[in-house]
Computed example of a mutant assay.
Amino acid sequence: MTTEAETPIASAVVPDELRLNVLPRFLGCHYLAGESLLYDWAARLCRSYQGGLWHFFTLSNGGFYMAPADSARVHVRRHLNGYSDMMGADAFGITVTLFALCHLAERTLDDAIADRYHQLRVFATQHVEAANILRAID
Score class of each variant (00 low, 15 high):
residue 100 A to G: 00
residue 90 D to K: 10
residue 91 A to I: 04
residue 71 S to M: 13
residue 132 N to A: 12
residue 44 R to I: 08
residue 25 R to L: 14
residue 36 S to P: 00
residue 109 L to M: 15
residue 88 G to I: 03
residue 116 R to K: 08
residue 115 D to F: 12
residue 50 Q to C: 14
residue 22 V to L: 01
residue 51 G to A: 07
residue 108 T to E: 05
residue 80 L to V: 08
residue 121 R to Q: 12
residue 68 P to M: 06
residue 85 D to I: 01
residue 85 D to Y: 03
residue 15 P to Y: 12
residue 120 L to G: 02
residue 80 L to P: 01
residue 64 F to C: 13
residue 9 I to E: 10
residue 119 Q to W: 08
residue 52 G to F: 08
residue 115 D to H: 14
residue 134 L to M: 14
residue 75 H to I: 09
residue 68 P to W: 06
residue 17 E to M: 13
residue 105 A to L: 02
residue 90 D to M: 10
residue 52 G to I: 07
residue 30 H to P: 00
residue 122 V to F: 07
residue 126 Q to G: 04
residue 121 R to T: 11
residue 126 Q to D: 07
residue 100 A to N: 00
residue 17 E to A: 15
residue 123 F to D: 00
residue 43 A to P: 00
residue 93 G to P: 02
residue 119 Q to T: 06
residue 92 F to N: 10
residue 129 E to I: 06
residue 28 G to R: 07
residue 137 I to N: 11
residue 22 V to K: 01
residue 49 Y to W: 15
residue 57 F to N: 05
residue 50 Q to A: 14
residue 118 H to R: 14
residue 27 L to I: 06
residue 124 A to M: 03
residue 114 A to R: 14
residue 132 N to L: 11
residue 11 S to L: 13
residue 55 H to F: 11
residue 87 M to A: 04
residue 123 F to S: 00
residue 133 I to M: 02
residue 120 L to I: 07
residue 109 L to A: 15
residue 132 N to W: 07
residue 99 F to S: 02
residue 87 M to D: 02
residue 68 P to C: 05
residue 125 T to L: 06
residue 2 T to F: 10
residue 35 E to H: 07
residue 96 V to W: 00
residue 83 Y to E: 05
residue 49 Y to P: 02
residue 20 L to A: 15
residue 116 R to L: 03
residue 26 F to N: 07
residue 119 Q to F: 08
residue 92 F to S: 12
residue 135 R to Y: 09
residue 124 A to R: 03
residue 115 D to N: 13
residue 115 D to I: 13
residue 105 A to R: 00
residue 28 G to E: 07
residue 104 L to Q: 03
residue 121 R to D: 11
residue 63 G to T: 05
residue 135 R to L: 11
residue 120 L to K: 04
residue 70 D to G: 06
residue 51 G to M: 06
residue 126 Q to T: 06
residue 60 S to T: 13
residue 76 V to G: 07
residue 119 Q to R: 09
residue 67 A to R: 03
residue 103 H to S: 09
residue 68 P to K: 04
residue 38 L to D: 00
residue 117 Y to T: 03
residue 74 V to N: 03
residue 56 F to H: 09
residue 98 L to N: 04
residue 72 A to I: 04
residue 3 T to S: 04
residue 85 D to K: 03
residue 62 G to A: 11
residue 39 Y to K: 14
residue 67 A to M: 03
residue 26 F to M: 12
residue 73 R to A: 08
residue 75 H to C: 09
residue 8 P to G: 01
residue 127 H to G: 03
residue 48 S to V: 08
residue 85 D to S: 05
residue 110 D to C: 02
residue 97 T to C: 01
residue 32 L to D: 13
residue 26 F to R: 08
residue 20 L to I: 14
residue 91 A to H: 06
residue 134 L to C: 10
residue 84 S to R: 08
